[in-house]
Write a protein that binds this DNA or RNA. Structure first.
Lengths: 331, 331
DNA sequence: ACGCAGTGGTTATACGTATAATCAGTTGAT
DNA sequence: ATCAACTGATTATACGTATAACCACTGCGT
């Protein structure tokens, strides 16, 4: 009942062959010369015993683990991130790698890197905020071939996948101005986890607004009705708002309705993410959808390159995201 | 530049001691007799080399891994699940375990179990739908001490953590009847991932409704405005609706408003989850909040028990969730 | 008869770690 | 002076796997 897990040696004994033969058969190594009947005997014995190889032992022997670690706890969890993760998982497992999420207790920097390094992964993907130069050095020293930072800006120390937040802001602001807005506001969330991305979206909006001669107000907003109500004079002064995302847009539309400000009559509104709730709002919400469908396969390919080559890659970045405007009634 | 990762033997050489001494010092084993100065030398050498132990080798030697796998892809991701996961992570790492999310490519049954078993985890938590009897046997055979099913109902084959969905439905229905509703409806989502939980919530609501002599209509609803509009005669026939969760409640409130049905005047509405959007709806949404704050520490303790004892535990279950009614304006 | 290539395996070893077993010195009690 | 107990280490080994190196045997051309 409480026996030890069967090993390849157990399989070998049952099949009447040597342990080496078992290894050759089960991994079907190209060069191995084993007769078909022996192969069958080995496979059957493995099946009977319920043999499952010991990943740790294999890693120890080969020096490579096939394990890819991803730490998502910098990146906001949403349907978007989940879907992307699933697809990435599929792409990587197809290539023989195992994708595993490991947040490392919200550690960051070197302590987080040490925790990851213990597992001797072949690649680590982590929020840019968790990877400083020393942390990357720890990972490299532990044999991690590919270190990729995920975040809003590219990293100077390693390859990275950056989300083009500025592009989102630019798209939203451009649309508002196209609709005739003469003064606009852009929301920057006050929440620590979101503020940085808010700043980036703001900067993109600001760039477009300046280029087209439209004044832009920055609105630092905590996610609460009181917070939104406290800025009522801001919303009354402008005729267009980029609300950072759909949740904030819903918050604002609720508060504006209570205050008697008409959307889009008095102020046009644009969100981001194209959440299901966007079409449920009245008026229906114009939003920026981020198309990430191209991202998993691109990232998987890039990872494969990085893991195969010997030298650590020069820091570069890809941003395989495509912001698309979905125009509805609120703008 | 591309050197191999430093081993405990490298540390030993630099410190001028044996590899065994390094192991004793870095794990500071209670019985080990090593002088303080030697300890210091070893620690310094390890620091200098950036030594990180090799988890695979350690697992191989000791036979235990400290790795706990959780597969969340049955359980719906939301702020609730995320928060719970973080707290569970904290509880387990405090006890010396490493919590890792591993979805296993959405495999289920034996194939998923084999993938998990390769890592020789000490515990596996997975959606009840992924764990059939054979899968559990595979895990047990691979030395997994604790196998815990997560889901809406208890498992006959292993310990489980069940969410008391029936209790949620009962609480919501009881509240509606308290408010004077004489005929109520309960939403069951048509989405494959949610339907089962919807059935459980429905059953709880039905139990209470029958006990109090109130007719209850089941409403199978896909998440779309067309779907909700197609059932308009249902909503018109009842004076209370338990909407499964807040998202569905928002969908219904939007459609009902468009159709001229007043909430709560014509029909009272109760959601579930207490999402931020619940307070942003007009009228503000009455909802069932699930208090999961007690869950992580309870689960961690239970896991610890299971992992320490030798015999596989008899299937039992805990449901450390506390549904709480949050009454607002919609009911 | 002899080498020689091909077939179907086996033997031996290393990966990095934890730990039981051992050992050389030193101290202390009698 | 002798033995026991303690201190501070070292030596040796096993965990499960992959793979290089080796080996016995058969068939075959000369």
């Amino acid at each position: 009942m409480n026996a030890k897990p069967p090993t390849s040696l157990d399989v070998a004994r049952l099949a009447g062959v040597s342990q080496a033969t078992v290894s050759y058969v089960l991994n079907d190594r190209p060069g191995a010369r084993v007769s078909d009947e022996t192969r069958e005997r080995v496979r059957e014995a493995a099946e009977r015993l319920g043999y499952v190889p010991h990943a740790g032992a294999r890693t120890l022997r080969t020096g490579r683990s096939g394990l890819i670690l991803i730490s998502m706890d910098d990146v906001p969890y949403g349907p978007l991130a989940i879907g992307m993760l699933e697809e990435l998982d599929r792409e990587l497992s197809r290539r023989g790698y195992t994708l595993v999420q490991y947040g490392a207790r919200r550690l960051r920097g070197v302590p987080a890197a040490r925790a990851w390094a213990e597992l001797r992964p072949v690649a680590v993907l982590a929020g840019a905020g968790k990877l400083d130069e020393q942390a990357v050095a720890v990972l490299r020293s532990a044999g991690v071939k590919a270190v990729v930072a995920l975040g809003a800006h590219s990293s100077a120390v390693t390859a990275s996948v950056v989300v083009d937040h500025a592009g989102i802001g630019a798209l939203a602001a451009g649309h508002l101005i196209d609709r005739g807005c003469r003064t606009i506001a852009a929301v920057v969330p006050a929440e620590p986890g979101l503020r940085e991305m808010g700043e980036h979206r703001l900067s993109g909006a600001r760039r477009v607004a300046e280029a087209r001669g439209v004044p832009l107000t920055r609105a630092d907003l905590p996610f609460s009705e009181e917070g939104a109500a406290a800025l009522l004079d801001v919303w009354r002064r402008v005729d267009g708002v980029f609300a950072y995302n759909d949740d904030y847009a819903m918050l604002l539309m609720t508060v504006l309705r209570d205050a008697g400000v008409a959307v889009p009559g008095d102020v046009r509104m644009v969100g981001c993410d194209d959440l299901p709730l966007a079409t449920l709002l009245r008026p229906r919400l114009t939003t920026v959808r981020i198309d990430v469908s191209a991202m998993p396969s691109l990232l998987a390919r890039r990872l494969e390159e990085l893991m195969e080559q010997e030298a650590p890659a020069e820091p570069d970045h890809i941003h395989p995201w495509n912001p698309v405007l979905v125009v509805r009634e609120s703008s």
